[in-house]
Every structure is written in structure tokens, then in C-alpha cells.
Design a protein around this nucleic acid. Structure first.
Length: 545
RNA sequence: GGGCCGGUAGCUCAGCGGUCAGAGCAGGGGGCUUUUAACCCUCGUGUCCUGGGUUCGAAUCCCAGCCGGCUCACCA
């Protein structure tokens, strides 16, 4: 059974699936694994007939700590300030820094068919919903300190209290420390040297830490969210799942301070690039919204859902990774539609396919049956100038594409272009050589040379213009020369591309200037002298999009 | 130092107690007179990381170790 269904099978009663994130900047593709896993669980629960909610929290009262994303003069003023109170980057129409980046992230979810109920901590605190937990945390501060010591081996001073006040003078939350609690108010200090990444203003005073004037530290806030929203399932990345790590602390705080059993955990692995962690700042990995251009949403879901959450996925967008992902998706789709498929299929392939669809209500078999053009072929067609891509694909299908199939094709054309621009290996790129390729000089047989010469003559006579006309000519001349079609095409490709295969030859030649084509054919045949120093007068043009 | 995950064909991975260990891709060979990066046929003896153990039987379970990655020990 599929892992998400296994989880759903051992549960009963209403379920609340939750995740939350600090909107401190753009995120890379790997960050999408969490939301996709959560969504799959949510769908599995509902399909099992359980009442289930999917929540997503934006921890936008967390302090700004990403200096690189601020302008230099804003660093002093905004480092340490809650993200909800930091202005959005220049050019953004968003109300705040947090809104800007959370908005990007949430839009990416929506594009993946993930539609959680969202909540913003900057809005939750003012309602007073967190106040009971702030009070509990302060009343039981000694036990909180004991938990940190026992679970995480972190020693806080006896005056340390688990709440951070938003400084009334400078507005920073990352620089304040609470040193006392009288049952209604806390005494806090905004210290210049509390953290290295932000500078407090030195203010101190007493304040009632309720209604949004203070926030709980991460581990307590997390546990408070569980209680406030009744969370029953909360998977998290394995970085948090380590012994003595965040999850352990929050679990202990939930049990011992807030007196509630923590939600079911299900740690998930990361998406690595070339065996290493993705890191946008280190130039490894791709921003989530960038990758969404290269991979249509179903493929992105498929990428994560085809493996168990505990399996680290190694994803390197370079090379053949992306075409292979499409091929594998198409194989799984074909099998789901009931078609015969070569080779083995992943376990639960039909389930994986169904969960990869954006619309949970869609009929998986009907969707699986749609015509999906081969990615490599689309990539090739996308490089032939003037190619009628949809016409060619429809011809392959044997019928016009329906609306859904047109969307699939458009997605793939877009994906192919992005892939070719950024990731494709050179051999996937088609380029007509400026000069007769050395491969042609070496690789052409005598009969192929004769054939190309004959083709040059025939082209001079019949002056073909369209791809069809060229294609016909290539075949006709091959027939007259008694050369098998495969050898004929190979000769053409060698003469222009320096390789033995390529896009439909007729359309390729039709895209080039005829005088150049004829001249090249004659050179390849050995009938015309080659230019001395590559200074060919003909302009071959690049046959790339 | 602690934790988690992984180590199976060139690459990506499936298999996780029971026929001689599998698939895709890549690669080799062959075929194809109009889908020519497609399609069809064909080719894989790999220390299943290592060493012990359990078992009638282990890639599959247990123990130890090695290697790789991530992570915690500051904050979120």
C-alpha cells in the first residue's frame, strides 16, 4: 500500500494536518517536498472518509535575519524586526516583506494544486489566541528551562523566560530578552549584543506580553500552534527530526507545558542536487518558482511522490534528468490508463499517478489516457524554426488534440525551452554547423557522397520550399540512387549537423537558405571546393529556437 | 560527539525472508521506402559496502564496522 494510505489506514476521527514556515526569503525546489507530502496525506485521509483539514501557517512574527536580502541602509533598521513589519522588497506591491515572500510561496503551492487554509501568526497573536500559552510558558518557565537542558542540552540562565517582547522603542523582536515575570507583566531588555546579526536599542521596561506585544520562541510557538489548531499530523523535514532537535523540544514542551500529546510526525528527506544539499546562496539548486517553469506541476508532484518520504531524492536538473522524469511519468500514466508498458513499474504506480494530478477530483484513468508527447521529441521540434509543433504532435496521435492535451503540449513546449536554455546537454541542442563538419568528411561513404550530390542537383531543379517538398525530395532521390532511407538521412544529418540523426530532415533543410543547402550538399559530395578559411559567404543560421 | 537516511549493473533506482537478483536510461549489435533523437528485435555472471550472527533459506532480519549525505549541540 502507498505510504500515505498506510498512514491514513491506521487513523480514525477528524484530522488536522499542519505545516508552517518562516517567510524569510525565496525558497528552492526542495522546500516544496513538505507541502506536497502534506497534501498527499490530506488527500489520502479524505479518500478514506476521514474529516481532514490542511493548514499552513506563516511564521511572520519571526525576526528578520537574512541580511543579504536587505539594502545596506535597511540592515541597521530592520534586522531583528518581525518579518511582518519589514517593508517589501523594492518593486513589490506587497504590504510587507513577509507578505511578499509568503505570497510567492503560497502561489507556488496553488500552482501545484495545494490549497491549504493559511494563517498568519502576526494575525493570530492579536486575537489573544496565543495568550493562554504565553501565560503557561511564563508560569512554568523553570520547567521550560529544564526541558531545554534535558532534551537539547541547552543551558539558559535562571532569569531566562520563554517569550520575546517586540521592543516598544525600536520594534525589534530578535534582540530582546525577558528577565522577569510578575504574573501580569514581564521585564525585558533590548540588548545591543544579544545576537550577532542584529543590534538592540538598549531600551528596557515592563510590559504585558499579550495580544501581539510579544511572541513565543520557535519551539514553544510550534507547540502552541498544535494546541490552538488541534493539529494531529505534522510531518517535518529531517533537519528538525534529529534527537535533541526542534521536534524533540517541541514535543516535550507540548506534553509537559501545554499538556497535550504532540501530533504524529513523519520526517521526510530532502531533495539534493548532485548528492549535496540544495543551497540557493551557494549556487546549488533552483528557486522553487524557477523550477516550476521547467517542470509542469504534475511532474513536480510526481518527482516527490514517486519515492517514500524517507528516501532522499537526488535531483540534478542538468543532463538527462528532466527528460527521464517526463518519460517515467508517461510510462506510469500509460500503465494507469491500462496500456501495456515495457519493463517494471514502481510500486503503487496508479496511486502515484492519481496523487500527482492537480485536481483531487479528477478521474485518474481518464487523465492517464490523454496523449502525452515525448519530451525529447518536443524539445527537438521546439528547435526547428517554423515547425508546426501541434500539427506534428496531432499527426503522431492520429487525431486533433483535445483541450487538455493542448495544455499538456503547451506545458511541455515551455518546459523544453527552459530545459534547453538552462540545463540540456550540448548533444540535445541542434545546431547547423557553419562549415562542413569533420564528421561528414570522415564518415560519409562513397554512395552517400554520390547521393548528396544527386540531391543537390535535384534541389537545384525542383527548388523545394516547404518541409514536405524537401522531405519528398530526400526520399525520391534516395530511391533513385537505390540508397536505403536510413543511410540517406544519415548522410544529410552528417553534412549539416555532424551527427547521424536529427530532427525531421525535410523541415530542417526548409528552414535554411536554399543556396546554402545546395552549396553544403555539393561540398559534402566532394563536388565543390570547401572555403579556404571558413569564410563561407552563405549564412547557415542557427537552427535553434 | 549524538541522531536520521542511504550504500543493489556505467547512471537513476525497485525489490526489504523464499524461484537462477530486476527495470528505466546510457552503451554494443541488427532492422526499418516517409513518426528517422521515433519505432522494432537483440546483448548484462553485478563482492546486492564489509565482517560476523539468526534461519531449511538473507540483498532482505540482528550485531559490529566502513563509506557518503543531512542534521543537532546558537537561532528559527
Amino acid at each position: 500500500m502507498y505510504w500515505a494510505d498506510e498512514l491514513a489506514a491506521r487513523l480514525s476521527g477528524p484530522q488536522v494536518v499542519n505545516d508552517s514556515k518562516t517567510p524569510s526569503g525565496t525558497v528552492h525546489v526542495g522546500s516544496l517536498r513538505g507541502p506536497v507530502v502534506l497534501d498527499a496525506i490530506w488527500r489520502a485521509l479524505r479518500e478514506r472518509g476521514l474529516e481532514a483539514r490542511l493548514l499552513y501557517g506563516v511564521d511572520d512574527l519571526d525576526p528578520m535575519d537574512a541580511q543579504a536580502l536587505l539594502t545596506p541602509d535597511a540592515v541597521e533598521r530592520y534586522m531583528g524586526v518581525p518579518l511582518a513589519h519589514v517593508p517589501a522588497p523594492e518593486g513589490s506591491g506587497a504590504a510587507s516583506y513577509a507578505r511578499h515572500f509568503a505570497g510567492l510561496f503560497l502561489a507556488t503551492f496553488a500552482g501545484l494544486g495545494i490549497h491549504p487554509e493559511t494563517y498568519w501568526m502576526s494575525e493570530v497573536y492579536p486575537t489573544g489566541a496565543v495568550d493562554p500559552y504565553i501565560r503557561l510558558a511564563l508560569d512554568r518557565a523553570d520547567r521550560v528551562r529544564e526541558i531545554y537542558r534535558r532534551v537539547a542540552n541547552v543551558q539558559h540562565p535562571p532569569t531566562w523566560h520563554p517569550v520575546s517582547v517586540i521592543c516598544e522603542q525600536c520594534g525589534k523582536v530578535g534582540t530582546t530578552i525577558v528577565t522577569d515575570w510578575d504574573g501580569e507583566r514581564v521585564r525585558y531588555e533590548c540588548r545591543p549584543d544579544l545576537v550577532t546579526w542584529a543590534t538592540g536599542c538598549g531600551h528596557s521596561g515592563w510590559v504585558a506580553p499579550f495580544g501581539g506585544r510579544a511572541k513565543l520562541p520557535w519551539n514553544l510557538e510550534w507547540a502552541a500552534q498544535w494546541s490552538i489548531f488541534g493539529v494531529t499530523i505534522e510531518p517535518n523535514g529531517k533537519d528538525l527530526a534529529t534527537a535533541g532537535g526542534s521536534r524533540d523540544r517541541s514535543d516535550a514542551i507540548s506534553r509537559e507545558i501545554f499538556e497535550r500529546e504532540p501530533p504524529i510526525n513523519l520526517p521526510y528527506e530532502f531533495l539534493n542536487i548532485g548528492g549535496r544539499k540544495m543551497s540557493t546562496s551557494k549556487g546549488r539548486g533552483a528557486a522553487a518558482h524557477t523550477m516550476a517553469e521547467v517542470l509542469p506541476p504534475e511532474l513536480l508532484r510526481f518527482l516527490f511522490l514517486r519515492h517514500r518520504p524517507s528516501h532522499a531524492i537526488d535531483f540534478d536538473p542538468a543532463g538527462e534528468t528532466i527528460p527521464r522524469l517526463f518519460d517515467e511519468f508517461d510510462r506510469v500514466a500509460a500503465a494507469t490508463a491500462g496500456r501495456e508498458v515495457k519493463g517494471e513499474l514502481p510500486p503503487d504506480h496508479a496511486r502515484i499517478f492519481a496523487l500527482s494530478l492537480l485536481d483531487p477530483e479528477a478521474d485518474p484513468v481518464a487523465e492517464a489516457g490523454r496523449f502525452r508527447p515525448d519530451f525529447s521529441q518536443v524539445a527537438m521540434l521546439a528547435q526547428v524554426p517554423g515547425a508546426d509543433i501541434e500539427g506534428r504532435i496531432a499527426a503522431e496521435k492520429g487525431a486533433p488534440l483535445d483541450l487538455a492535451e493542448q495544455v499538456i503540449l503547451a506545458d511541455r513546449v515551455r518546459a523544453a525551452r527552459a530545459w534547453l536554455a538552462d540545463y540540456a546537454p550540448d548533444r540535445a541542442r541542434i545546431a547547423v554547423r557553419d562549415e562542413l563538419p569533420a564528421e561528414a568528411r570522415r564518415g560519409l561513404s562513397d554512395e552517400q557522397r554520390t547521393y548528396l550530390g544527386a540531391l543537390a542537383i535535384a534541389a537545384g531543379v525542383s527548388r523545394p520550399v516547404s518541409g514536405d517538398a524537401w522531405q519528398d525530395l530526400i526520399f525520391r532521390v534516395a530511391e533513385e540512387a537505390a540508397l536505403p532511407a536510413g543511410r540517406a538521412f544519415g548522410a544529410v544529418y552528417l553534412a549539416f549537423l555532424g551527427r547521424t540523426n536529427g530532427p525531421r530532415a525535410g523541415w530542417l533543410l526548409a528552414a535554411l537558405e536554399r543556396t546554402f543547402v545546395v552549396e553544403r550538399l555539393r561540398q559534402a559530395a566532394g563536388w565543390a571546393p570547401e572555403p579556404e578559411d571558413g569564410g563561407s559567404s552563405a549564412q547557415p543560421g542557427e537552427a535553434s529556437a
